[in-house]
């Protein structure tokens, strides 16, 4: 299926940027969003539309979906990539940081799933891919709020899969291992190596590992796959 309408959150940098470029290169129409405007460009830029929005701000998120409905009439896939991390001992984590992480990661994912389902249900089909993390099953110290915000995404994924099944929408999640992005910049090397040692396959993830799982969930043939979480690296 080409020329899919794909909405990706958090496209300014990191995995979101790479996902946007990847699906643009495949010939899809990509709608992206982030709090600030991305600096990257691709040769398929005419197929990319960007919205400046905070993912958990309902007032700035709803116009994205109105645009999709009015311009394209449908939404084939939502990739809920936007996320922030707070790596700190819980005793040293300010409430403001905790609220920010839960707001962006958990509530942002919920809001985009809800609004996407309203559009997708009109065509009785759609794919939603959420972003979990290996930090949840590995129970990583220093990532209590981040892991909890993503654990909530696992619950959302599993329950929304059931709520949206009658609308022909699948909801799944990918749980990446650390990838060398800004999200882990500042984490001591020793800590990263300890983390990698807990994976069955002990290496950093690469963007292609994530694309592979997202592609699988987006395939037309994956219409019987829902409520699943695939962790990378054998976690």
């Amino acid at each position: 299926m080409s020329n899919r309408i794909v909405l990706i959150t958090g496209t300014r940098k990191g995995i979101g940027e790479e996902l946007a470029k990847y699906y643009l290169a495949k010939g899809d129409i990509v709608i992206g969003c982030s709090r600030s405007v991305p600096e990257w460009k691709t040769s398929a830029q005419e197929n990319y539309k960007h919205f400046q929005a905070d993912v958990n701000d309902e007032k700035s998120v709803k116009p994205i979906f109105s645009y999709i409905r009015r311009t394209h009439g449908r939404l084939d896939a939502l990739i809920n990539n936007a996320g922030i991390a707070s790596m700190n001992h819980s005793i040293l984590t300010p409430m403001q940081s905790a609220e920010r992480v839960l707001g962006t990661n958990t509530l942002g994912t919920f809001l985009f799933c809800r609004e996407a389902a309203k559009v997708m249900k009109n065509h009785k089909s759609g794919r939603i891919v959420n972003f979990a993390t290996v930090a949840t099953p590995l129970k990583l110290e220093g990532e209590a709020i981040y892991a909890a915000s993503k654990a909530a995404i696992v619950s959302l994924t599993q329950i929304l899969a059931r709520e949206y099944a009658d609308f022909g929408i699948t909801v799944n999640a990918v749980g990446p291992t650390p990838i060398k992005t800004d999200l882990i910049r500042g984490v001591p090397l020793e800590k990263m190596e300890r983390l990698l040692a807990r994976q069955a396959i002990r290496r950093y993830g690469v963007y292609e590992d994530v694309f592979n799982v997202v592609d699988f969930f987006l395939r037309e043939q994956s219409d019987f796959i829902t409520g699943q979480v695939i962790y990378l690296g054998g976690v």
Binding site: R69, K118, K121, F167
Partner: peptide, 8 residues
Amino acid sequence: SLIASIEQ
């Protein structure tokens, strides 16, 4: 589904 359609 109906409420979502009316909202749209």
